[in-house]
């Protein structure tokens, strides 16, 4: 059990270090040229509904920019919770992808619930088993989420795996890791399902593990299938940020920093200073018409008269 606790610590560290370093890497990239794509949901004045922008206004630079953050939430919530984009553009995929992703959400909710009850237990309130109504609600919520998540997850896994194998549109573009990833996530659902039907008290087992981990106790007993589930889950959490599945957080950047990024370059703004720095980056593109030598800057190259081409 101690080894599992150590693995848990290493997993949490790996996960956060990998996620944070990726966030830093992406955020510290240079400011790019505007590349938004409409509709941009924070456009105010009812424009977001039809995909309009402030550029529809005459002399827009003289007007106050009205950014509707609620508009972004109205798009983000259905996108995250229901995978709305996939539903609208690829219903066949949604049939497998939605239960597959929704099950992960349910498992994440369970992780949060177990963490809360563990903290409460440490504080002397064993809410899950104290017999009070809130404890009972949490107990059955966890159980329902685990059952629903594992069953839907298995269905989603089978459907996605089947599509990846038989649909040439997908199989032609799938690397070995695509199949591996689906099976890997499917194994998390399957092991929970086996744990649930093993006749053990699943909620008690898992909450004991959480409490044992926090107190570093060796007196925790979980079934073999529980060990399998925990080890696989830990390995998956550590592996996740290193794959394309890191879109669970990089999607923030693809939407907010590219697709919806429409900040105007106002004189003397922070943005304009940053852009001026970048215009002083040296250029080394080699085509003759560029006229770069590795030291000349973008600004110099963009403002000079290019060499006549032969």
């Amino acid at each position: 059990m101690i080894l599992i606790y150590i693995l848990t610590i290493l997993t949490v560290i790996t996960f956060f270090v990998a996620v944070i370093s990726k966030i830093i890497r992406i955020s510290s990239a240079p400011v790019h040229l505007r590349w938004e794509l409409y509709p941009v949901p924070h456009e105010g004045g009812g424009k977001a509904k039809y995909g309009g922008s402030r550029l529809e206004e005459p002399d827009w630079w003289e007007k106050k920019i009205h950014k509707d953050s609620l508009g972004e939430l109205k798009v983000m919530i259905p996108e995250i919770v229901f995978l709305k984009g996939v539903w609208e553009h690829n219903k066949q995929l949604w049939i497998g992808s939605y239960p597959f992703h929704f099950s992960l959400y349910l498992f994440i909710v369970n992780i949060a619930l177990f963490s809360i009850v563990t903290i409460l237990k440490l504080l002397g309130n064993d809410v899950l088993f104290s017999g009070n109504i809130i404890g009972q609600i949490i107990y059955y919520a966890i159980l329902i989420f685990a059952w629903t998540g594992s069953v839907l997850g298995i269905i989603g896994t089978i459907r996605l795996l089947f599509s990846r194998i038989v649909d040439p549109n997908l199989s032609k573009y799938s690397s070995a890791s695509h199949y591996f990833n689906i099976i890997f996530i499917g194994s998390l659902y399957f092991t929970v399902f086996l744990w649930l039907i093993s006749g053990r008290d699943f909620v008690a087992d898992v909450s004991n593990f959480y409490y044992g981990f926090i107190t570093f106790s060796t007196a925790v007993e979980i079934p073999t299938i529980g060990y399998w589930h925990i080890i696989l889950s830990l390995l998956f959490i550590a592996y996740l940020p290193f794959t394309h599945m890191s879109h669970f957080f990089t999607k923030y950047f693809t939407y907010h920093k590219v697709r919806w990024e429409d900040e105007p370059n106002l004189p003397s703004s922070k943005l304009s200073k940053k852009l001026m720095e970048q215009l002083n980056y040296p250029v080394s593109w080699a085509a003759p018409h560029i006229g770069a030598d590795g030291t000349k800057t973008w600004l110099a190259i963009a403002t000079e008269i290019p060499k006549k081409e032969k």
Binding site: I26, A29, P30, V31, H32, L33, W35, G85, V86, H89, N90, L93, S97, N169, L170, Y173, S174, H178, H244, S246, H247, T250, K251, F253, T254, K257, V258, Q278, Y281, P282, V283, S284, W285, W298
Partner: peptide, 22 residues
């Protein structure tokens, strides 16, 4: 230096495609 103009969106598009063909 050479591609500050589009580097961030390019890398994001390189690294996160799920090959779902949507």
């Amino acid at each position: 230096e050479n591609n500050w103009t589009f580097l961030q969106p390019l890398v994001l598009s390189m690294e996160h495609c799920a090959k779902c063909q949507t």
